[in-house]
Deep mutational scan, measured.
Amino acid sequence: QRITLKDYAMRFGQTKTAKDLGVYQSAINKAIHAGRKIFLTINADGSVYAEEVKDGEVKPFPS
Rank of each mutant, 00 (worst) to 15 (best):
K16N: 04
D45I: 04
D20N: 05
Y8R: 00
P60C: 06
S47A: 08
V53T: 08
G35A: 08
A44K: 11
F12C: 04
F61L: 03
S47N: 08
Q25R: 14
G35K: 13
A50E: 00
K54H: 12
V23M: 10
D7F: 04
G13D: 02
I28W: 01
Q14D: 10
M10V: 10
D45L: 04
F61K: 02
A9D: 02
R36S: 07
Q1F: 13
A27C: 15
Y24T: 15
A50V: 03
K59F: 14
G13V: 01
A34S: 14
R36F: 07
T15N: 12
R36I: 05
K54L: 15
K19S: 11
I32D: 01
N29C: 10
V58S: 10
A44L: 11
I42S: 04
I28G: 00
Q14C: 12
K37G: 08
G22H: 08
V58G: 05
Q1M: 13
A18R: 02
A44F: 09
Y24G: 15
A27F: 11
H33W: 12
T17S: 04
T4F: 06
S47T: 14
L40V: 15
S26P: 10
L40H: 00
I32T: 03
K54P: 02
K59M: 15
A9T: 11
D7P: 01
V23F: 04
K6S: 10
G35I: 03
A9M: 10
D7K: 06
K37Q: 15
H33Q: 15
L5F: 02
G56K: 07
I28R: 00
R11G: 04
V23L: 10
L21R: 00
K54A: 13
A34K: 10
K16W: 02
I42M: 09
R36K: 07
Y49A: 08
R36V: 05
K59Q: 13
E51L: 08
H33T: 14
I32C: 03
T4H: 09
N43K: 12
V48S: 03
F12E: 06
Y8S: 00
M10P: 01
T17G: 01
G56Q: 06
R11W: 10
E52H: 03
Q14W: 14
